[in-house]
Structure formats: structure tokens, C-alpha cells
Nucleic acid binder design. Sequence first.
DNA 1: AACCATGATGTTAGCGCTCACAAAGGGGCG
DNA 2: CGCCCCTTTGTGAGCGCTAACATCATGGTT
Lengths: 338, 338
Amino acid sequence: MSQTVRAPVMADVARLAGVSHQTVSRVVNDAAHISPETREKVLDAIERLGYRPNTSARALVRGRTGIIGVIATASVEFGPVSIQRTVEQAAAAAGFFPTSVNLPELSTAALEQAVDHLRTLGVEAVVMIAGHDEALGIVRAQRTGVPVVVAQGDLGRDSSGVGVDQWAAARAVTEHLVGLGHREIVHVSGPLDWAEARARLEGWRQAMFDAGLRPASPITGDWSSESGFRAGLQICQRPEVTAVFAANDQIALGLLRALYECGRTVPGDVSVVGVDDIPEAAYLIPPLTTVRQDFAAVGRRAIDLVQRLVAGEPAEPVPLLVPELVVRSSTAPPPPLR
Amino acid sequence: MSQTVRAPVMADVARLAGVSHQTVSRVVNDAAHISPETREKVLDAIERLGYRPNTSARALVRGRTGIIGVIATASVEFGPVSIQRTVEQAAAAAGFFPTSVNLPELSTAALEQAVDHLRTLGVEAVVMIAGHDEALGIVRAQRTGVPVVVAQGDLGRDSSGVGVDQWAAARAVTEHLVGLGHREIVHVSGPLDWAEARARLEGWRQAMFDAGLRPASPITGDWSSESGFRAGLQICQRPEVTAVFAANDQIALGLLRALYECGRTVPGDVSVVGVDDIPEAAYLIPPLTTVRQDFAAVGRRAIDLVQRLVAGEPAEPVPLLVPELVVRSSTAPPPPLR
DNA sequence: AACCATGATGTTAGCGCTCACAAAGGGGCG
DNA sequence: CGCCCCTTTGTGAGCGCTAACATCATGGTT
């Protein structure tokens, strides 16, 4: 085993380059007033030694760690994961070090622990990807001392958040269905302590009212295919229903299966729409009409906001992103009146 | 805006408690030989001041950051994401600070940048969740100076890895199919520069030989539903095929759709099996027979290994985890010979 | 010719913490 | 009663770096 040689430090570089450590520091942080020759010498020494600055020392003296905490649920669903990925990428691209905490459960204790962990690390800001209200409340209540940005949560009452206009998504879906001639459109919602679930519910309801239709009471799901399947079984009992708007694609997937089981064809007898446009959506039976969201943009905007807040600028509200309806084969006009 | 008061440091606690900073340090790190009263006083002062140790300062003097780097692909697929989640959780549970880098593309440049980023952070170890060979090679070639543990990659030639026995998974699937009476079993593989894809391919091939069957040449996919759909279209042209073993559930999903399109019923005409047991697998049409893997165990073991390597212990090979066949409704005996 | 702005570099201090060592006090034992 | 050892606490140095200031040429300006 090669005896661990001490990693080179700034002083080593300085010695090799024949300059002071401060000059090395200047080159590393490319400050002004360095002669080209000196810079060259220093760069060369750095290269030769394989030197890299010690982040801890730098953070210590600067009083800034450059670390951004990301709190997310441990779910492996397409939406949250996609947002998390893009948040992390955008953070890294902006020169931050993203550090994630993925919570298996959204208990108060778990959240407090997560925040504690992040504070210990010295994060400069926190991005929350839990659209779950209570979670948000707990983190806010912790007085983290650093800016908290919410991605895709309840963005109404607080300006430091970014997300997609779920209300508009639901409206677009409902209007599409109404436009095809549907009148009995059922909504299978997500859990209502999620802001996104509520926004989709409200968008649907509003669009129904606007179309002069009476929205039947929605069925509450939990984002899972299983809940979609159960909802579908209920809908099988209701022959008047000709269209179902599922709060996400997983629910729609379960729905498709239940409808298949009870012999209702899609889209012949019933139209089905989801939200998210998961990669599998185009390959379901039948290919699913759904709503595409630009998750990458959410991530980028979240980090933009973080940068602004870290710099001490006031948080202007970020406009919501506009989702896009993707029409495939799971929607069609309702069957002729019987 | 409350004027930013300097965060309390150890000296502040010491002053308030009437002891030296060193005594505070001892309490914080709960060292031996501290009288109960002193500990009490210090703890009280810490509480009152809301003190928390500065991680950078600590890392600087200790020469250890406690940070573990996780390199993963930016994919949002169930398997990799699940492993990543559990690795992160296990790392946090072990007192480390996990930091992930998710690569949108597996180019050399991107990987080098990722490693560079992690080294800058001062990681003590790296966990790679890319089963992709080349990625692994690039990271290994970087001489990171810290242990690299591979989760779910090519584990054969190197001891510092943990994973599930994909070869056994493929065998179990194939034997299940053979046991049902199938003789023309096609494999739709993952990309063959992925170790897992190769292991599944080999397991299938071996099981076919062992059963005295001639394995037809496999169709190569890329893990996506789309590739599964395309493969399915090919299989539609081959009436002799009565069973398909897909390298993952997404591929199986696309396959199901293609077979549906061309009028081959599942499992009546063709049996289909996937791998991963994604949450949706039970709600496909029909519910998918697949292989369940204990991803949480992979994560835990990876961190166990990391701890051992960081402590300087030799890396004993970790035995592969055994996957579990989950039989649902997409497999049945082949149709009677015509 | 005296002056000072400017660029290039060096010197010093100190960020907040842990490590190594020193020092003080108390009890057991011959 | 003196010695030694153990417990408890304190002191000083220094981890690797950046910020602030000091220094020293240089060259244009009056």
C-alpha cells in the first residue's frame, strides 16, 4: 500500500513556484493584478503537484460553504425525482454543492432531523421538493436561518417558490374532455394535503363549472397505481361516467387496468387522462393522453431563486410554468347516447 | 430584517459556561473524563446559545470531511433511483454526509467533472451506481485517491462492489418459463455495455442450455419502454415465440403493448416476464410476472463496505443478494401445439 | 525633479476547531 | 507522610486558507 503522502497544500505550490502562498491564492481565485508569467509558473506548479484547494479551509475563512440542501421525499416517482435531478444539476452548474436528504417518511421528527443535518453541514439555502403541506410547515417553523425555496409545492401564499401551474394543467385536461363532448368527467385526485393535488382538483372543478357542468364528487387517490386501480373499480360501477381525469399517470395506469378488467374499453367507452407524461405513458394500452411539465425548468428556476436569495436580493414571485397537453389515444368522444 | 448576529462559536459557549473552549469541545465530542456537573453546564450553555459546531473548521483540523460522493446516472428509472435513495439513507444513518452527482450523460468529460467536483468537496469515498462499464472504467482511471464502491455494476472482477445476483435472476425467470413448458423463449436484453444486462443475458443463455434448449439470438434494448415496444413488434413477426424475458419491467411494458397491438394475447399466446418489480408492475395488463430485488439491502451493504474501506480494512468480497421471482398473470403454459 | 497613482507581490492575522501537552487536585498505598 | 497515578481541566499551536494591509518598483504627471 503506497504510504499516504500528505496532499499538497498552497504552501507547497508557493514553494515550487517560488512565490508567496498569497500569490497562489490569487491565481487560484483568479484575482486581478497577477503578471502572466507568475500566473503561468503557479499554474504549472499546481499542475505538477496535483494541488486542489481545501474546501473546508476555504469555507472556514470565507464563512460560506457553497452547500445547498435539498429535502425531498424518498419516493421514486417520476415527477419528484425529475425535479430533484434538475435541481441538483442546476445547483452544481451554478457552482454550489447540492446535498440531498430523502425522507422515507414525512414525520415531524424525520424533517427536524433532516433540517438539523443540513444546518450542521452549513447549507446556505434549502430547496424543498415536498409538495406536502405539513412538511413545508415544519421546515418553515424550524427557523433554519437560511432561505428556503419550495419547488412544486404550495406556492400561493409564499413568494419563494417555483412550479408548474397545476390549476392550468387541470383546466386544459378538462377542457379537452369537454371539447370532445364529455359531460360526466370524474376526477381521481392525489392526496389532498398535497398542494399540487388540490390545485388539480380545483382546476378541474372550475373548468367543469365554466362549462356549465356539475362536477361529481372526486375520488381521492394517493398517487399510486394501486389507488388508481381501486378508483377504477368504483368507476366500473358507474355507467354514466365517460371520462376520467387522473391526477397523475400512475393513477391513470391503474385506472386503465381496472377499466379493462370490467370490460369498459378506453377510449371507446371511457376516456382517461393523466398528468406528468412519464416515459411509459406512450406505451400503455392505449397510449395515454397526459400533461407534460417542464421539470428541468422548475429545477433551473429554483436555483435561480436560491442564488438571488443567497445574494440578499428580495424574492420576487416567479411566474408559474405553463404545462402542455399531450393528446394520445386514451381520449375520444363519448359513446353515443343510449 | 433581523441584523445577522454572528453564529455562536465554541468560545461563546465556553464563556457562558465558565469553562475553557477545550472543555466544550470535549463535551461536544463526548470525550471521557468530564465531570457530570461540567457537562451539564456546557450542555446548558449550548442549548441557550443554539450553538452548533462548525463542520468546516472541524473537517479542516481533523482532515476528514465525512462526505461520501455518490455518482449516478440522471435516469429516473426505478432501479437506480431506489438504490441511490437507500445508499443516501444508509450513508446518513452511518453519520456520513452523502452528496450525489447525477450525470445527464455518461461521457468521459462529464464523469471527470463529477469526480473533480467530488474531490474538491473532499469526499472520503465514492459510491458509483452506474452499472455502465465505461463509466466505471473512467472513474477508476481517475485515481481518486479514495475508495470507490460499486453498487449494482460489474462486480465480478473487483471486490469492492455490492449487488444482486442478476445471473440468478435470469435463471429463475428462464426456469419458470421452461417449467411452464415454453421452448421458444426470447430475451430482450438491456444495453450490453451494462454489466447487469450482460449478467441477465448470460443467465438466460445458461438456463436455456441447461434445459437442452437452443437460445435464439436475443434482441438488444436500452431499458426503455420504447425499445420494448420495438422488440415486441419484431416478435409479432415470429409466431413460434411463446415467451419473452424482458431485461426490465419498462421493456416488458412496451412489449405488452406491442403484443396487444398485433393481437397476440398475454399470457394466452405469449408469456412475458420483466425484472425489477416496479410499483406499476402489478397493475399492467396483464399483471406482470417479474423479479423483485432488495434495493434497500444493496444500499446498506454499499455503505457497510464504504465504512470498512474508509477504516482501512481490506475489502472482502460481499456475497451477491438473491432476487425473488414474483409470479403474476403474464405467464402461463404455452398454447397447444398447432 | 519631486510626486503619486498603479500594478505586482509579500506579510500578518485569524476563521473555529481539535490535538498534544501541561497543570492542578485528590486518593490509595507503603 | 510522601509518592505516584489518575481524573479533570486548561493552554498553546496550528490545520489551510483568504482578507487586509504593507511594500516596492514603475511610470506618467505637474
